[in-house]
Design a protein around this nucleic acid. Structure first.
Lengths: 206, 206
DNA sequence: CGTCGCATTGATATCGCTCAAATCCGGTGG
DNA sequence: CCACCGGATTTGAGCGATATCAATGCGACG
């Protein structure tokens, strides 16, 4: 179950907005009105520490919910903006609430969707608790290959973005991949765009 | 909204089990039957990579859901066990589903609960993307102090566990705290059990 | 009083970050 | 078709932060 389903349900009742890099989606103190679903691009929520340092609270990419906590808070305590040109679906909270309360089937689906989002976030967290770069990469490959029946992983994101997700520098990720290939734990094809995890292919949902 | 609410709703329809360290909660391949809510202790879900290395998929502590992905998967692709003596509430999925579908108010509450869980997990992830230990500690303090109106943070967990959450070694966390105190960014009281974030106190939910 | 777990401190090794530069590649315009 | 440009990838060298290993302190508790 991916986000397309949610998108279709609210096609009529919500609007899709286009944002440019740096555009604000909401600001500190705003009253939350929408659940945001990132259709493409990347959105980010951040607040500032007392000394002015940026504190990233959330990053959301294609197919992910954004600022979902607005559903339970009266005010945003952070600001939301785009780090890349993005298209975002704005689902009005009142419509969403009404739907959850009145449509049992939808409520179940939505809960399951949240559950999957939670699972993914959880895996990301556990991944970054690993200290060695190679462990993080392996964890990632193991997870992303879920259900792909041993298929290769097609990378649709630049190396730099991937590194960012893994909490590594691009150079480190590159060197790690090279090392893993030398150890024959992975095979890279198509100029590094496709990665084959040697002797792998288990699912990894809970 | 904390987990107590969920616990109360299912008091009658679910059982609370006690586990010892190392006890299995479910095994690889089992058909998911319960949503687990950790009342105390710690539960962990893990699978194994092709070469036999453990891959932690989820850790859940007091007040957190565990193996919630079972709600959408026909089989567990990992095993769940306890790393500490734990009490866990077993909420039957069929009862939960029925409730979500039939009780709109509950469905909304449950969605909000999942939403908050997602928010927390998200913050943890972003925290570990920070590379410097001091940044992780500061991010943690900023987040945990949410809504406490500038209150101090009472630590109810051992230093080692906290370090684990932050993806650091206990020694590193200790030294980092000492350094932060020397820089007067935090103050420690009560033998390190209480921490005051100097000049802080903003909320940090999205 | 002894010991057990956890906090604290020190010394060293290691890994990933940083800065710098070369290379590759796709796209663009002549 | 070819030369050129810009961004991403690749490679190198050195440094710094954190992990690791080791040891000590210290309070709770039997």
């Amino acid at each position: 179950m991916n986000a397309d389903w949610l998108q279709q349900v609210f096609e009529k009742e919500s609007q899709e907005s286009a944002y440019r890099t740096g555009d604000f989606i909401f600001r500190l103190g705003d009253a939350p009105r929408y659940l945001y679903l990132v259709v493409s691009g990347e959105a980010r929520a951040q607040r500032y520490s007392p000394d002015g340092a940026e504190i990233v609270m959330q990053r959301a990419r294609t197919g992910e919910l954004f600022a979902e906590a607005g559903m339970v808070a009266p005010r945003y305590s952070c600001e939301g903006y785009c780090t890349q040109p993005a298209r975002i679906l704005l689902i009005p909270f009142d419509k969403l609430r009404a739907r959850i309360q009145s449509d049992g089937e939808f409520a179940l689906r939505f809960s399951q969707f949240l559950t999957l989002s939670l699972r993914r976030q959880c895996a990301r967290y556990e991944r970054l608790r690993l200290k060695r770069a190679s462990d993080r990469v392996l964890h990632y490959l193991n997870c992303e290959l879920t259900g792909l029946a041993g298929a290769d992983l097609e990378l649709d994101i630049p190396l730099a973005d991937w590194a960012d997700d893994l909490g590594l520098e691009p150079e480190t990720l590159y060197r790690t991949l090279a090392a893993l290939e030398k150890q024959k734990l992975i095979r890279r094809e198509a100029r590094g765009r496709r990665i084959h995890l040697v002797g792998a292919g288990q699912a990894c949902g809970t």
